[in-house]
């Protein structure tokens, strides 16, 4: 697609591998992705993310390896935001981090609900 931004990934192609060292986050420009966590031989689907959503942001804030894998569901275009670029933008305009905080807060809330649901 000439009019898409970022980089193309095809169906089932891995964009992020669990366990790898990450130094960037991704913003979905077109299509959707699945976030997967592997534990032993088992694979758990954590979320399906669509256009405008982002993933891999935890790598911007800590030095840990990727906690989950992300693969394309159909053809996907994602824009990469390297840690260095991210930090430079936030240094100039701290309010840019707000949406990421908002999204992280939403995920914590959603996880809380799932933990409660599992216990009841």
């Amino acid at each position: 697609m000439l009019d898409s931004m970022g980089k193309a990934f095809h169906d089932q192609e891995y964009i992020v591998q669990q366990g790898e060292i990450g130094d960037c986050m991704y913003v979905i420009q077109a299509g959707s992705v699945e976030v997967i966590r592997r534990v032993g031989d088992r694979e758990f689907s954590l979320a399906v993310l669509g256009e405008g959503e982002f993933f891999g942001e935890m790598a911007l804030f800590d030095q840990e390896v990727r906690s989950a894998a992300v693969r394309a569901l159909g053809d996907v275009w994602v824009l990469t935001l390297e840690k260095r670029s991210f930090l430079r933008h936030v240094r100039r305009d701290p309010s840019l981090a707000f949406r990421i905080l908002e999204r992280m807060a939403h995920r914590i809330r959603s996880l809380d609900s799932r933990v409660v649901a599992m216990g009841t």
């Binding site: 009019d3 898409s4 931004m5 913003v27 420009q29 670029s85 933008h89 840019l96 949406r99 990421i100």
Partner: peptide, 16 residues
């Protein structure tokens, strides 16, 4: 493009 992505503003195909 990067700042807009961080703002949650995606330039759609057609505009791009």
């Amino acid at each position: 493009v990067q700042c807009l992505a961080m703002e949650g503003i995606r330039l759609p195909a057609g505009v791009v």
